Amino acid sequence: MSMIFEHTTLGQRVLFGTGQAAKKVAAELERLGSTRPMVIAAGPERPLAETATADITSALWWDDVVQHVPVEVADKARAAAQDHAVDALVCVGGGSTTGLAKAISLTTGLPIVAVPTTYAGSEATNVWGMTEDRTKTTGVDDRVLPVAVVYDAELSKTLPVGLSVASGLNGMAHCVDSLWAPRADPINQALALEGARALALALRGIVADPDDLGAREQALYGCYLAAVAFASAGSGLHHKICHVLGGTFDLPHAQTHATVLPYVLALNAPAVPELAGRLATALGHVPVGEAEDSALVMLHGLPTDESHTPAAVAVAALRELYAVVEAPARLSDYGFTAEGIPEAIERILKAAPTSNPVTVTEENITGLLTAALTGAVPSPAAATLIAR
């Protein structure tokens, strides 16, 4: 079969170096000709932001950062930037901080230098998102793509293990979604699979030793690849589900993505066995003898008659990683309840991409949310599949 696809690579500078954030931030602002930068960092991240911006003088510090970027918060920050004649934005933090910088840039065109302290990946996409009236709206605009990203593993050392895991699995969700999102192509699939491999290794390393800077570097590398793949492939079913759960029910971003991911994989993987097999390999699954393989799958609750399908092995490999890193497992732990399922289903069905490998129905989304709510073991055999 011949390859026919169109791929766009976003233009962005990436500066990677442990312990070098301050020097690189200053150099980027000088390159941009900026003399009045606005530094955006949530209150708890002020010490990290001071480290990353030690070599510059800011015109304004901004610490009003709220997850899912409420419109009113974005409006206040835009007004402050205008009042202080800001000429560039430096955001130091996670996805919410980067998201606020993007919201400002969306209407002002101010260039962004992003300094991530988590593994969210927002810094490498041209996707913005804001929330109003319990509805999260996202869009694509090249104005919000940071002109430069400064990665420094030292700045992620203080991220607690639990948050590191949730954030890294948020990056893993970018990888998995990019395998079959609306604009998925062989290039972003390759990036996504390498990102998944790096993140799986990194998270195991961080859990084993939170001070392992090599593992922290791998996590940043993996989340960057995941985000580049996601920016190209677009938002798939997983992200549509999580945007509803986050924007409408105010669930925490990273933990929600981490919790939902195994269930979306279990739904879609049987319809794309070749991609599922490649994902299983990226996650560290090594084909072994039938007895050992069956034992691995049974350990994670999958039926033995499905133990050797690529979908089953991919789900088992992800579940094994989740067990090792003690990943988030139940939406009920973050405030979601069964009473919210009907509204969530209604919103998800409206947003679900028609290109999803499996036809999205009220029945399979009900099953997915119910299982994710309680932490039931995901199984491809349990999904109601209508393959495209």
Rank of each mutant, 00 (worst) to 15 (best):
S2Q: 12
M3A: 14
I4D: 15
R13Q: 13
R13H: 12
F16M: 12
T18C: 13
Q20N: 13
A26S: 13
S34H: 02
R36V: 09
R36G: 06
P37W: 07
V39L: 11
A41W: 04
A41L: 03
E45Y: 09
A49N: 05
T53K: 00
W61N: 05
D63W: 01
V65K: 07
Q67C: 06
Q67R: 11
H68A: 08
P70Y: 01
R78L: 02
Q82T: 14
H84T: 09
A85K: 14
G94K: 03
K102H: 08
S105I: 11
G109T: 07
A114R: 07
G129H: 04
T131I: 10
D141S: 11
D142R: 14
L145C: 10
P160K: 12
G162E: 15
L163T: 11
V165C: 00
M172V: 15
A173N: 07
V176W: 03
V176I: 15
W180A: 11
P186S: 04
I187L: 15
L191T: 01
L193P: 00
G195F: 03
G195T: 08
R197N: 09
L201R: 14
L201C: 10
R204Q: 14
V207K: 05
A215F: 03
Q218G: 10
L220N: 06
Y221M: 09
G222W: 03
C223A: 14
A231G: 15
A231Q: 06
S235M: 14
C242V: 04
G247Q: 04
T248V: 03
D250G: 01
A254I: 02
Y263G: 06
L265A: 14
N268V: 13
A271C: 15
G277V: 01
L279G: 00
P287L: 05
E292M: 09
S294T: 12
L299P: 00
H300E: 13
L302A: 05
S307D: 08
P310A: 05
A311H: 05
A316S: 15
A317R: 08
V325L: 12
S332M: 07
A338I: 02
I348C: 07
T354L: 12
N356G: 07
V360D: 01
E362A: 10
T366F: 08
A371Y: 03
P378W: 04
A381F: 08
A383D: 02
I386E: 13
A387D: 06
